[in-house]
Nucleic acid binder design. Sequence first.
DNA 1: TAGATCTTCTAGCACTGCTAACCTAAGGCG
DNA 2: CGCCTTAGGTTAGCAGTGCTAGAAGATCTA
Lengths: 189, 189
Amino acid sequence: MAEASARARRAAERRQQILDAARTVAEAEGWAAVTSRRLADVIGYTQPVLYAHFAGGKTEIMRTVALGGFTELAAAMRGAVGRKTGVRAVTAVAGAYLDFAAAHPSLYEAMFQLPIDARFAQEDAETELRSAFEALAAVLGDGHDETATEVLWSALHGMSLLERAGRMRPEHHANRVAELAARFGSDHG
Amino acid sequence: MAEASARARRAAERRQQILDAARTVAEAEGWAAVTSRRLADVIGYTQPVLYAHFAGGKTEIMRTVALGGFTELAAAMRGAVGRKTGVRAVTAVAGAYLDFAAAHPSLYEAMFQLPIDARFAQEDAETELRSAFEALAAVLGDGHDETATEVLWSALHGMSLLERAGRMRPEHHANRVAELAARFGSDHG
DNA sequence: TAGATCTTCTAGCACTGCTAACCTAAGGCG
DNA sequence: CGCCTTAGGTTAGCAGTGCTAGAAGATCTA
């Protein structure tokens, strides 16, 4: 028993090591640099060990990293909003969202570029995704169905990607957030 | 001279062949299937021929395909809007945009996932990009600076990606377009 | 017809994700 | 204690990727 749990613990530790390595390398050099040989090197083992912990290979590793990202994003949004309401709440959540995407571009990429196969506005979605969606829905206040939240999410997602891709004028970042908050912070039929 | 132009014409034809092949294969099987060997096969030559026409390799081929996509997108948006104004114009342009993205997912992917290195709201941007941006700006009417257009573009871009990724409820597509039009079709300080 | 040039191919490099087969070290048990 | 099973790790290799150097072939020029 003690042996078995020790075994399991060591396995869990290495599993976490792999995830940490993947995220670290990805953030530093992009996902293209996250190769199986590279990860094996970082954790001090050889390639096939990765497949012992993640049968799905690189894809499953990315997916796991991505789910952790949703948890972090949800926390960041909730922390930024606090007890604010209306335009101020939307401004806060938008700022937190865009800051998160800008600070962890590779993590964000894994979260959205990857087919995680789940809708946000759906009860049986992964709890990580659902939690992030609800943090966003909260700022729109009552009287709004989930459609409005989907649209707000769309705008934030698109903006973060276009800003990162250099398609938006960087000096107008604050203006865009204000514009967005004005259009989503007050009511519309 | 006639020989030289014949030579040039044949080169241009093969160049176009390569672009067509890339787009066809990409639309059918995704960009991962667009390999240099595959393209060479389709046009009936061997790999190195591709590099004679596109020194930048696969990246340059994708970039060229992408620029053509912007021209098509701009035309689709202008055609859909016609002489409409206000909420009806935004609805039309949003519909055209999202339809385009849904109809040509791989082309759209190349247009935005690739670092084309240009901002939309910028005078010296590639004319293809600039044209598409202006088609979008037109529906917002006068009295709006380019910030509002950037935000609208963000929302459309994000929505098209999230719908394609399966993160949005498909049956609420029309609701999202209506929601978006309501928030962008009327004035806001 | 001889020579220069332009075009195309063969062959191969260094890399990718992934896997089969072997080898070794540890744990369970008579 | 010593055997035997099993889990964990390794080496070696497959099929595929983008890309390129150098040889061979076709075509136009003089």
